[in-house]
């Protein structure tokens, strides 16, 4: 990986503040050639962890939503059942 390739990669890290990206970009040219893959590896791993976390949270929330919807459906069915029961009682 070259210095320029690392710069291109850093520009894709748009979940970071612009100021941080800008600072990183300014520092890339000062890195030794052999350190470029290390920086890339680190940033890549951190970014993967970040997106995995977000994905995990979404999955968790989706499960919660399913549980809430189930409760909601049961409550609604019960309410409908009560309406029907009352109608039968009124007959």
């Amino acid at each position: 990986m070259t210095h320029e390739e690392l710069k291109i990669y850093i520009k894709t890290l748009t979940h970071l503040k612009e100021s941080k990206i800008k600072k990183y970009l300014e520092q890339v040219d000062e890195l030794k050639k052999e350190d470029i893959p290390k920086v890339y590896t680190y940033l890549f791993k951190k970014t993967a962890d970040y997106y995995a976390d977000i994905g995990g949270v979404i999955n968790k929330i989706e499960k919660e939503i399913d549980e809430e919807l189930y409760k909601y459906k049961i409550a609604k069915d019960k309410k409908n059942l009560d309406v029907v029961r009352n109608q039968i009682d009124d007959l």
């Binding site: 970071l16 503040k17 520092q27 350190d35 290390k38 920086v39 970040y50």
Partner: peptide, 29 residues
């Protein structure tokens, strides 16, 4: 409600990411 919860979690995670990543690339090495 769920949208708000998720939005805040994502923003919180972004903030943590900002703090976790070092200021200088040399620090990573």
């Amino acid at each position: 409600n769920y949208t708000e919860v998720l939005r805040n979690i994502i923003l919180q995670r972004i903030e943590e990411e900002e703090e976790e990543l070092p200021k200088d690339l040399n620090d990573i090495i």
